[in-house]
């Protein structure tokens, strides 16, 4: 599948010469090196790369939950380096939907309440509208009947879908997902990807990290990360598959 990302105006995500170092005691671990990249609104992009290549780190920078060591990260027109914590939080709430590698749902709230939570934080919709919004999503994701179950009473796949619903419920401009299909069987994974592509067709920007070739094959664009550096800005699914096979063989 292809998405018309080439013909857009200002990019919704723009990174310029970004480095990210982690400090492990006295040792400095460079997780990203000189990453420059731009993503236009409406793209469906996948970040592929082996474990430890920096996928999560990159998503965290774009998701405004972490700050680059050097370089600039511009999200929806705002340079995240100059924003105060309050404004960064506001930006996350307003423009971003984040699906975490481990779902991190609120343990004492049921599926419905977890999904509704970002809407409550935004405080924009009425109770009825919130309900409507949440239920539509739960239905789409096939977990309507679990709306009153708490995370502890759900399977990994069901929890993942609740997390996805929570990220989508505010209809954010950008949805970030860290290995969204890692905990799903292929049938559920496919149906979730279907819903996401549907949303993408209506304008939402998607940015995934993944190992999963099925996800890669659906991407409009594949960015390949190796050792914290971008190896390829627009790889094909075949490239990725070949490289993965080679890595496997080695």
């Amino acid at each position: 599948m292809t998405t018309a990302y080439a013909a857009t105006e200002t990019p919704i995500v723009k990174l310029v010469n970004v480095d990210k170092d982690y400090e492990l005691g006295t040792v400095i671990v460079p997780a990203l090196r000189d990453v420059s990249l731009s993503i236009a609104a409406g793209e469906f992009t996948v970040i592929a790369g082996p474990s430890g290549s920096g996928k999560t780190t990159l998503l965290n920078l774009i998701g405004c939950v972490d700050i680059a060591t050097r370089g600039s990260v511009i999200i929806d027109g705002s340079d995240t380096k100059v924003l105060k914590d309050k404004q960064l939080t506001e930006l996350r709430l307003r423009s971003l939907g984040f699906i975490f590698q481990s779902f991190n749902l609120v343990g004492v709230l049921d599926a419905f309440d977890n999904v509704e939570f970002p809407l409550l934080l935004q405080g924009k919709l009425s109770k009825a509208d919130r309900r409507e919004r949440v239920m539509v999503l739960l239905r789409q994701l096939g977990i309507e009947q679990y709306s009153h179950h708490r995370p502890g009473e759900l399977s990994g796949g069901q929890r993942q879908r609740v997390a996805i619903a929570r990220a989508l419920v505010t209809e954010p401009r950008i949805v970030l997902a860290d290995e969204p299909t890692a905990n799903l069987d292929s049938k559920t994974g496919n149906s979730i990807l279907d819903s996401m592509q549907e949303l993408n067709a209506r304008g939402t920007t998607f940015l995934f990290s993944t190992h999963d070739p099925r996800v890669v094959s659906r991407a409009g664009r594949v960015i390949r990360l190796v050792d914290g550096e971008i190896a390829d800005h627009n790889a094909t699914a075949e490239d990725v598959a070949q490289l993965a096979a080679a890595a496997h063989a080695a």
Binding site: K86, T89, E90, L93, F98, L105, V106, F117, P118, Q122
Partner: peptide
């Protein structure tokens, strides 16, 4: 016990 949960809530836009 709830550190991860707090992190997630902050990440989805809950203010300090």
């Amino acid at each position: 016990e709830r550190t991860r949960e707090i992190g997630a809530l902050r990440a989805i836009g809950m203010q300090r």
